[in-house]
Simulated scan of single mutants.
Amino acid sequence: MLLKWLDNIIWHNTTLSDTLHNKNIYLHLSLQNACLFALMAQATFLIFFIHVGVWSLCIVNICSILGYLLCYWLVLQNQYTPVGVILTTELAVYATISGLILGNGNYGLLGIFMDISLQLLIPYIATRVRIIISSLLTLLLISLIIMGYTFQPLVDLGKANMVLCILHVLSSIGALLIGALLLPRVQTSVNYWVRHQLEELKTEAYLDPLTQLHNRRYADIVFDQLRHYTTSSLWHVALLDIDDFKFINDDYGHLAGDMVLKALSETVQEQLHAGDFAFRWGGEEFLFLLKNCTSAQAYARLDNIRKVLGQSAVRYEQASIHFTVTIGAGKLDLQDIIGSINNCDQKMYQGKRSGKNKVVF
């Protein structure tokens, strides 16, 4: 459930442009999640210290919260190195001050372990630098453990110390879960999302944006597939042109012409059979591929499309626009697809010259 929630955040708040132009998208999302978790953890500790009256640590917690808010803002500005430095410093300073005031008996030193984990999991700076920082943090951890046996804590929390131990353990487990589960999921989710968006762009590249029919570029792919992988000759090709479309644009405007094109494409998609193809060939011309039909059947289906379109009307403002189409059709020769289309084009213009509003086979 949590991982699905993370996926939704990535998919709804990240644009493809961001992803392609920002090579550090994984680092961006990782630090963003780390800052949000740290803010929630410090807010919890602040409430606890207010309740038990340890005001010195309340001030430290407030400073930490302000630091994390600054980090979150820096992440949004794509300033990742300062974020990593601030997070590293805050965790080390907080664990040190907490150890001096309360001692090491409440697991406060787990913050140093989280700090070291940060160096291992989030590449906010060069690897060599993070290795050096991890070494220094390890020395700090050893020093604090030794100091815990040497100095008495300044504040004794009594029974409340057990609650603080639980909070420290839970915050450490939460940080480990983020490192072990969420951060790898961020990378996986981003990669999946990018692939999905690129596939959508690829699909859009083959669609005519006005009619939502496949375009001429996609028709070339279909013809290539038919040429190489189809042995059946039961394919027919047809070229449709809207009669006097120029007058529709001149009399009613180009917006009305666009509405006619969309209405035609919707009607065609309703009338075609499964396995057929419809393409916007260019302007007011449309190309159809009809599968598994005889010439007589192809003629009947195309003539039915012509009749349905002729009986329809497109409402535009106060006008009702009627239009007709002329269709040229024939068998598709898979060895001469261009010749087949040219043949349809000639027959279509033959129909135009002989009165329009007809199917010429």
Rank of each mutant, 00 (worst) to 15 (best):
A238N: 02
A319G: 08
S98K: 06
D250H: 07
I10T: 02
R216Q: 12
I112F: 03
T324I: 04
L27G: 03
A274Y: 05
V237M: 10
V129W: 02
G99C: 05
L226Y: 08
L57N: 09
Y206K: 15
L240P: 04
S134D: 09
L207H: 15
L240A: 05
L16N: 04
L261Y: 02
K356N: 00
L136I: 06
F37R: 11
I62W: 03
N13C: 07
V85L: 13
H236S: 12
V314M: 06
I133E: 03
Y80P: 02
N104Q: 10
G179T: 05
R185S: 07
I327D: 01
D220A: 13
T15R: 08
K307I: 13
S135K: 15
D7V: 00
R227N: 13
L16P: 02
K23H: 06
Q152W: 10
G310W: 01
L157G: 01
A175N: 04
T88S: 12
I125P: 03
L290N: 02
K4S: 10
V237R: 01
A95K: 00
L139D: 14
T267G: 05
L332K: 02
L226M: 15
Q77K: 14
I65S: 05
G179E: 05
V190G: 00
N357R: 00
L20K: 12
I146F: 15
N343V: 04
F48N: 08
F151S: 11
G355A: 00
W73I: 15
V52P: 05
F49Y: 10
P153R: 01
R216H: 09
T19G: 07
L164V: 00
A296C: 06
T188I: 08
K23F: 01
N33D: 11
I133G: 02
I221K: 15
Q77G: 08
L87K: 08
L118G: 00
H21Y: 14
L27V: 07
L100R: 14
F113D: 03
A205D: 12
L3R: 00
Q197W: 07
C344A: 05
V222R: 05
K246A: 10
G103K: 01
I221N: 14
I132E: 12
T96M: 08
A205R: 12
D336R: 04
E266R: 08
H273R: 15
Q318F: 04
W235F: 15
G253W: 06
M162C: 06
A298P: 00
Q212T: 13
Y299E: 07
N22M: 08
W281I: 01
Y206Q: 12
N33Q: 09
F277L: 11
C293Y: 02
D243P: 03
L201F: 13
T14W: 01
A205L: 11
L57S: 06
G257Q: 06
G174K: 01
I341V: 14
Q119R: 05
W5S: 07
W55T: 13
G105I: 03
I122T: 03
